[in-house]
């Protein structure tokens, strides 16, 4: 107590992060419902790795460990990364991705608050570039495939890479709806017939549409708790909707409807949880809109024309680079200086 203000509002970084973690729960519940509990194992693995890496890096950087471990930011990175990679991934994939995210993309840039790129997305990008085949094998949602793996079978695969009997990995996994769409379109499939395939569920994919819905619920919670502002999710989703909708109107046989883009892949997770990471997004309202519009456009372009199954991660990273520029360009007018500056 040396200088004013002598009173503070009870709020903390760790509480904010905790709220975000809490908001992820509906999506996770849907995830478990459709893909089995394997995701929980991934999340646990990622969490432990993240905390251990965080502690190690803090020690190496000669920083106090306890206050930073308690800020929950490492946990959030771990959860987001675990939710972005296939649920049935070998343990080392999760561990390598998380370690990279925390050590290289967070601590080498100065730790909490100083990283220019979203750590979880950096981890994801490294994994999809380094281990593309592991990253494209998604568990077949419950009820779609012939074989359903039990929890012990899933654990066995995660830790030992062994599947029961002579089941092949391909028999229990499949490409994501986004990936399938791209392949089918490549083989000159018609949008209508493709979307009638069982994997597409009601409109965007069995499982993925419900998981996305869960993230949407969580995102709304964050908005009403004023943890995030509306600018980024709204601008992102509207851009994605507008671009995909326009092209869908032009050529419905080649371009998927906008709702498909909203509810498949990581669109909802990205809109509410990844792009809204305060550290790596702009600080001005106008800047946030520009940032999210850019991310929406890039996501769409990468999804439709790019080589990767989903575009959210790369769109996020590309827009992360431009944050300082966007911030500098979108400084709002100061009190009493509206006409002058």
């Amino acid at each position: 107590m040396a200088f004013s203000p002598f009173i503070t509002k009870p709020s903390s970084v760790s509480e904010i992060m905790l709220q975000v973690l809490f908001a992820l729960i509906p999506g996770i519940l849907f995830y478990v419902w459709f893909y089995g509990p394997a995701i929980l194992v991934s999340m646990l693995l990622a969490s432990l790795t993240a905390l251990a890496t965080e502690a190690l890096m803090l020690k190496l950087r000669n920083r106090p460990v306890a206050p930073f471990l308690k800020d929950n930011s490492a946990l959030l990175t771990a959860w987001l990364l675990a939710l972005s990679i296939p649920p049935l991934a070998p343990w080392w994939l999760v561990v390598v991705g998380t370690m990279f995210a925390i050590s290289i993309s967070k601590h080498l840039y100065g730790g909490l608050g100083n990283n220019p790129f979203n750590p979880a997305m950096v981890g994801y990008a490294v994994l999809i570039i380094s281990f593309p085949s592991y990253m494209t094998h998604w568990l077949t949602p419950d009820g779609l495939g012939d074989i359903t793996l039990g929890f012990s079978d899933q654990l066995n695969y995660i830790f030992h890479g062994i599947l029961p009997g002579d089941i092949k990995l391909d028999a229990v996994t499949m490409a994501t709806p986004l990936d399938t769409l791209k392949t089918q379109l490549h083989m000159n499939g018609q949008m209508k017939t493709i979307l009638d395939m069982p994997i597409y569920g009601h409109f965007a994919g069995v499982g993925s549409e419900w998981v996305s819905f869960g993230f949407l619920l969580g995102g709304l919670y964050l908005f009403f708790r004023r943890i995030i502002s509306w600018h980024i999710p709204v601008a992102f989703l509207v851009t994605l909707f507008a671009v995909s909708g326009a092209l869908h109107l032009v050529d419905p046989s080649r371009y998927a409807p906008p709702l498909f883009h909203w509810f498949s892949g990581a669109a909802m997770l990205g809109a509410f949880f990844i792009l809204t990471d305060p550290v790596t997004s702009p600080t001005t309202p106008k800047g946030r809109m520009i940032f999210a519009c850019g991310a929406g456009l890039l996501t769409f372009l990468i999804r439709v024309y790019g080589g990767f199954p989903d575009g959210v991660a790369f769109a996020t990273l590309l827009m992360n680079i431009s944050v300082p520029l966007i911030d500098a360009w979108t400084q709002p007018a100061v009190f009493g200086r509206k006409d002058r500056s």
């Binding site: 040396a2 200088f3 920083r63 106090p64 306890a66 206050p67």
Partner: peptide, 14 residues
């Protein structure tokens, strides 16, 4: 210039 330690136990009145 504000001076503070990162852990409360080390906080000294500047």
């Amino acid at each position: 210039y504000p001076v503070y330690a990162l852990t409360p136990s080390q906080t000294a009145a500047p």
